[in-house]
Computed example of a mutant assay.
Amino acid sequence: MTPQPGMGVVVENFDADSTEDVQLLKKTVYRDKIVLLRGQDLDVPGFLALGRRLGTPEAYYEPAYHHPDHHEVFVSANVEENGQRIGVPKTGRFWHSDYQFMPRPFDITLTSPRVVPTKNRGTLFIDMAKAYEGLSHELKQRVEGTSATHTVRRYFKIRPSDVYRPICELVAEVDAKTPPVTAPTVYEHPHTGERVLYLSEGFTESITDAAGQQQPELLRELLAATGQLDDVPNEVPVHLQTFEAGDVLIWDNRTLVHRAVHTDTPEPAISWRVTVHDPAGA
């Protein structure tokens, strides 16, 4: 196990069939936030099996993202297989926590890069527990007792079947399938006890104070302070995690927000993802 500059550890010779290795992996994810398992090269059933050993996977609510044989596996791909589109291209090009718009936060995310571009690749991460620690005293006071509302509206990907549909009809369908959810803006991590600022540029629509008044300026200040607004300088470190095809990248989805780095070249890119609930944090 080798620490990385900035955040996380790299693990060699991980045995996905070893109960001891899997238990240690989960502890390491919550302690170090990111774990890169080198050279696993798991097939789809093996990758999903590892996810199941860490928690309970859940299929993404939009079927277009599903692997055709294993619906709990989310596919991001910009190429076709046997003349058929599998998955969705260029996912996650904004700061977010996976499924932050769902009622119950997911604990752990696993990704398996299958085809990796030669340029502009990797995933950017921000530790929102450290970001909360670094807030000014004044900002901490203002955010205390507030709640944040999260929705998929802003980054819902238009499907081929949505062409020519009225936007109001599409928004109504999005809200029916995934209604906006509201949760404390700062919460205690169930596995680590850390105070985490739970918001993102991609999915957080608003912040509301204890009197029920929306605080748009507070939301912008928090996004800026945590490094999620590209045009605003910040003091929060952003970690770039790189990987190779066949690695498995695992992170603490309750603490980290992330953003995919996508190449603008036509190089092929394919990755699988599984996101799980850890029963120990229920």
Rank of each mutant, 00 (worst) to 15 (best):
C168E: 11
P57N: 07
R31P: 02
T118Y: 02
V238E: 15
A260V: 10
T56S: 09
G39P: 02
E201N: 13
H239D: 01
V11F: 03
D252K: 09
G55D: 07
E235Q: 15
Q40V: 04
L240I: 01
V44F: 05
E20H: 08
V44Y: 02
P68L: 04
H96M: 13
W95D: 02
V11Y: 02
A225L: 12
Y132H: 14
P160D: 08
Y164N: 15
G193A: 01
H239M: 01
K130S: 12
P113D: 05
T109E: 00
G193D: 03
M102E: 12
E81P: 00
K33Y: 09
R121P: 00
S206T: 14
H239R: 04
G246Y: 07
A77C: 14
S18D: 06
T149W: 01
V181H: 10
D98K: 06
R220P: 06
P268L: 10
V22F: 07
P63D: 10
A77R: 15
E194N: 15
F243G: 03
L24R: 13
V248M: 03
E244D: 14
C168N: 11
I167P: 02
L42G: 02
F74Q: 09
F125K: 00
K90V: 10
T91Q: 14
T91R: 08
K130N: 11
E188I: 15
T111E: 02
Y164F: 12
E173M: 13
A64N: 08
V44Q: 07
E173G: 12
L36M: 10
K177N: 08
L223K: 06
Y65C: 13
S200P: 07
G193Y: 03
V44E: 10
K130V: 08
V29H: 04
V115R: 13
H189D: 07
G83R: 11
Q215L: 14
M128I: 03
L219R: 14
D278E: 09
V174M: 15
R85P: 12
R254G: 09
A183R: 15
G51Q: 05
G6W: 07
F14A: 00
A77D: 13
V261Y: 01
T226P: 04
P233I: 06
T111P: 01
E20I: 12
D17W: 09
L170V: 15
W272Q: 14
L197G: 08
E138S: 14
F156S: 09
E20L: 12
E138Y: 10
R53I: 03
S76D: 11
H70N: 13
E12K: 09
T28I: 04
T109Q: 00
V29G: 06
G46P: 00
I126D: 01
S18E: 05
V10L: 13
E205S: 14
G55N: 04
A225M: 12
H150Q: 10
D15E: 10
K119Y: 01
D209Y: 03
N234K: 05
Q100Y: 00
V35Y: 06
F94S: 04
R85W: 05
